[in-house]
Design a protein around this nucleic acid. Sequence first.
DNA 1: CTGAAAGCGCTTACAG
DNA 2: CTGAAAGCGCTTACAG
Lengths: 343, 343
Amino acid sequence: MTDPGDVAVEQRGAPTLEEVAKAAGVSRSTVSRVINDAPGVSRRAREAVTRAIETLGYVPNEAARSLVTRRTNSIALVVSEPGDRVVTDPFFAGVLRGVHAGLSGSGRQLVLTMLAEDDDGARLEKYLCSGHVDGALVVSMHGEDPLPRRLAEAGLPVVTGGRPLTGGVPYVDADNFTGALSAARHLVERGRRRIGTLAGPGDMAVGIDRLAGWRRGMSEAGLATDAVVHSDFAVEAGAEAMARLLDAHPDVDAVFAAADLIAVGALRELAARGRRVPDDVAVVGFDDSVLATMATPALTTVRQPVEELGRTMTWRLLAQLAGEEPLPPSILLPTELVVRDSA
Amino acid sequence: MTDPGDVAVEQRGAPTLEEVAKAAGVSRSTVSRVINDAPGVSRRAREAVTRAIETLGYVPNEAARSLVTRRTNSIALVVSEPGDRVVTDPFFAGVLRGVHAGLSGSGRQLVLTMLAEDDDGARLEKYLCSGHVDGALVVSMHGEDPLPRRLAEAGLPVVTGGRPLTGGVPYVDADNFTGALSAARHLVERGRRRIGTLAGPGDMAVGIDRLAGWRRGMSEAGLATDAVVHSDFAVEAGAEAMARLLDAHPDVDAVFAAADLIAVGALRELAARGRRVPDDVAVVGFDDSVLATMATPALTTVRQPVEELGRTMTWRLLAQLAGEEPLPPSILLPTELVVRDSA
DNA sequence: CTGAAAGCGCTTACAG
DNA sequence: CTGAAAGCGCTTACAG
């Protein structure tokens, strides 16, 4: 019969360093040195310890080790968003792939933490600050998330995926400004003169930066920047935004959407109104998600290197943990225009 | 200038329980009792401690706590497969959602561990056995993975997602046998008499169980069980397997594929050969993945409750950690036939 | 090259 | 209700 509440079965009788020392006929210090590959151990002693470890099946207790070394050899990937919504997001999947790739070979483990539905982030913050991890990678989808900054202020090394609106934290982001600019320029080059944009939410860095890039593209071509409608990152929202844009500016001959999801919604609305794409209205999206190729017509869009984002975030954090310097406070990853049929 | 190699910035000067005790004018024992909601603390003392904790911004050091309590309040989700391949797998995404949901409110954190490409599992095993986690959920995609059993033998509470071929470990699985049986019966009811199967790999439990279910369906209807071809879980492999099946048994009027991926490949091969689906050959898949609705014709398939799988695994593990009993060694989740156009 | 000793920050009987 | 003391399993100066 199991002792209720006993969660420590695996430790019951697990050999300690002390027992290894006894079995090998040496001191704890020597065993510790062998385990940590420290210099200054005779071959004879090293072999005896190795044999004892083998025989006893000894595995060092990480809690004890961590208590004195102050390091855990794990880092957190923090998804500052209720987890159930995020997991199926291809953006998140790409970042996770990149983080995993970036971590492999570093000897560090990944702790994935997501907000629970009932959590305001306090529990998460406490967990992260209580010494469970050596550093945190924060991917936060929404606006002014206080978490990254609070973690950083608590002294935890943090790197954010995407520019944090609050600032004060090193981040890695896709070059949304330049990406949007290249989309705008592409439309201009194709001879479009009345170009609108379905911008993302105004309280998100991606929304702000992509809008700024579009605006810049318009000004440098001497075009108007008044045809702006904001939209959430969703197909339905994109369709509605497109409707509003057309109502306000019936003469638009091109649209830059701040996300493929929005662009797909726009395509739907344009089709519903009998506007041909790209003949009547050219459409450019952003992300180069799977949606882009599945859309009809196939979407011209700006590719952002999602996996590379995860990989670079990880590199940046590991470099910081290793004390490397100088280290760039922020890193922008290049985007790339992918021309298909819609523009 | 940062001290190279110093990864412990966050601990520098972090207040300890001792300092809280001093500030509150009580002993460490009392502070500990307050933190752990233990009974037997005067209101006066409790308030003083709470205030001190607030003022100092005290967060308990988990390593120290874990060292004495032998619990970490985190559990591992072990993907016993190189991580880069798995992350985008919708099966994995579903399980992760379920695990997250199952964990929420339990106060436990999730540690996601995946095999690195260069890893044979030894490092992973060591990590899991060194006291980083209280228990492990193992999702292993391939054949006779020794990991779950080894972890269990090392005393770590383990629950596997999918029946492990090696046995000896509690698991949660979809009822693949009954699911395949229902697919077979459906084909029989539709009047099919020459029914083949594109079975999964013979060294995977899902392959074995779904083949067994189909076989049972054939025998109870007095039909032949000779039209069997094995296939990997991939579209291309499914197409090839279908070709082999047709070459060997040109008279088949129905096929049960052990996965939607295989079924989609089969559809492609049937189309290439000019066989109409379902008129000439009916097709049933397994999984009810997004592919099923996207296929032409839409795939009749067996739905397995992926998210529920993750949720149930988590429940089973938490129950075990809590010492609840009796606990079923294994749990099968019901599957459901989803009838669409292909059969 | 090796070991005795102190200490990391907690929890937990135990005594009062 | 409260505190002094032991101890969890390691690492790390320090002395030899």
